[in-house]
Write a protein that binds this DNA or RNA. Structure first.
Lengths: 215, 215, 215, 215
DNA sequence: GATGAATGAGGATTCATTCAT
DNA sequence: GATGAATGAATCCTCATTCAT
């Protein structure tokens, strides 16, 4: 019993170490030795806790994706109203400091062709993300603050896609285009949902938008 | 002199072979042996023409991205009018049969963090793609067929981002969601440009769009 | 004192578990973990009772060979008459269902060169088997049912050798040549001992044997 | 062309090195490193010539068995008459100095259960050996020097079995029982074939045999 | 110019053994 | 007494790279 608890604890430590390693060095750079070093353990010990290294990586990836999805759902649940909820979602979806989990999501997405075992989890995560946005959109629509000009599903999918793309771009830390990307995504949301999410920013030369979006 | 010509020719052959290999087996699956087999050359010879295998891969990736950008530009140049041009661009940007070059673009995007040498080329390609869409948008706006509801740059960047994200999703060949993704991107373009690109599809419950988007 | 008794008991349990494992998975497949699983003990405990895993295997092999020899001797002791005793011995020596002990004997025979520690036990077992057959032959000769045409020792050794060879062949479970092998060994016994052990089988064209072996 | 020749040569060298290693350390003791050391090559080079280490071992085993069978067949072909041919066959079948090839035959026989890939080759070799003895027996029978008292096949199979068993016993180099084993096998042949192969040896207490075999 | 033989570092994995608890 | 965590040496295998020819 105690033993099992301790064992579970160690496995969790190894999952965390694997998160770090994947986040820092990518899925291709994750090796038994790298994880072992991270966890201050010998390579042999990693295989003592997990049948194979692949199993460890799979478990790490799945837990990361699950955790990421959970966080997004919690964010929506905590939102005060649809407008701020939407802004928070987009801000968090194109984050300043990319979390280990999100980095892993990107890593695994980009490696899908070679590692079919992740397809199910990735597809599931995407469904979850779309579902979260659909719930948010429905909430806002029913509240009357959103007036969608296209299908709910289309908006949700486009938002997720924009987040994915802009998030991927931000993996390159050399340029800080994040505020720009967030604004782009929110501009789409404004147009698609018929609402105002951004202040009129004169220095952004947004006159056309300004005129249309503030009737 | 002659020697140099021949050498350049061989290098080009190797670049092409590398394109094929990366496209078929991914960047992770690209090995000296694989390229050598493709080029009907010996593994040793690859390193005779390129300092290292990494250098070859880098060169191949850059040329692929350049070629991809050129093709996009040519597509716009050949467009008859802004509307069909836009549709063609999006259709080609989320393609049915992914070309070797595009596949490489996706492959390299996903390993950007580990290979900083690709950052410049990727950033350059993105700028080119955005510029192409901006030219298209300006053309349509000046012709009066587009009535943009947000900044030209924002629309262009969002279109590129949507193409990237949906293209990445399609790397997983198990689901054929391509028509769906193309439609999503075009719906965004319709909303952002105040134009009609898609037929009204009754079973898609798109009434709100019809009413709102054509004031 | 009690402790010692308990310890001996445990060691015996481990020997039995090792028998099973070797019999099922071969000497090469015998590992600390496999034995520990069989004995419902932890791997660490095995090394608590035996200095090394090799020591355990050696002890297991020796006890298996001893047990096998004992069984053969008991078989002879229980025989009603020399003829049926001989048939029973050969039948049991090329057995249908190989016992754990016999399998271990075969296993160990095949690794003799690498494990000199087994040589003494193997030699001893062979001597015992030969002695058993010699006793049987002498019994039959004195009863008048056997009329040996060669040295008693030669017959005994050849019988043991035939059993060993045919038993080894049967380790390959893909072909069921056992009845054939038993018949071969008995044919030798008939010729060497001048007796009849097998029915005359017309389709076997054994006329010469019938005519020549009963002068 | 030249290259292929050189390559074949190297492969042959590796096969020979593998023969040595298996012969000296057994199949279980054969490792990439061991063969590499023998061949004065790096471990990586072994896998350069053979797809996998298992492939090398399989090839080595098969060539050893083939070579062994060939040698036996040649021995028979060179025999002057059936009697001396038989004696030579048995002498060679229970050899003084066990050749690498024969040692490998024993090794592989004893490991059949775990390595099913060898079953076919082993079965084939046994068939060849039996066939050789059958040819010899038929030759002697037709010449009138053999008067078989049992089926030709039975005699042949028993001879092969005796050789196998006695050869296995001789893997233990500590006891020199070889002359004894040869004599045992020949005694069986004498009885089964109704011929005389051994001189009457007074110090062997062979009176019964002596009387019968020298009419 | 071009080859292919050869290497060596690194990959995951297995497993007998040690040892603190 | 007994455990299971942890190790380290060994296993086969991959692959970019070097170099004599």
């Amino acid at each position: 019993m105690m033993a099992t608890v301790r064992r579970q604890q160690r496995k969790q430590e190894l999952l965390t170490a694997t998160h770090r390693v994947i986040s820092e060095r990518g899925i291709a750079g994750a090796s038994v030795r790298a994880v072992a070093d991270r966890a201050a353990l010998s390579p042999g010990s990693i295989l003592y806790y997990f049948e194979s290294f692949e199993e460890l990586v799979t478990a790490a990836v799945e837990s990361a994706m699950e955790e990421f999805g959970d966080r997004r759902r919690r964010l929506l649940d905590a939102a005060a109203d649809p407008i701020t909820g939407l802004c928070q979602m987009v801000e968090a979806g194109i984050p300043e400091r990319i979390s280990d989990e999100l980095r892993i999501v990107y890593e695994v997405s980009s490696v899908l062709r070679d590692k079919p075992q992740f397809r199910a989890s990735v597809a599931l995560l995407m469904d979850r993300q779309v579902a979260i946005y659909r719930d948010l959109i429905r909430w806002g629509t029913e509240s009357g603050v959103f007036r969608p000009v296209m299908e709910e599903a289309t908006i949700a999918e486009n938002l997720v896609a924009l987040e994915d793309a802009y998030g991927l771009y931000l993996l390159d830390p050399s340029s800080d285009r994040r505020p720009h990307y967030v604004r782009n995504a929110l501009r789409f949301a404004e147009a698609a949902l018929g609402c105002t999410l951004l202040p009129a920013t004169p220095d952004d030369t947004l006159e056309p938008l300004g005129k249309d979006s503030t009737p």
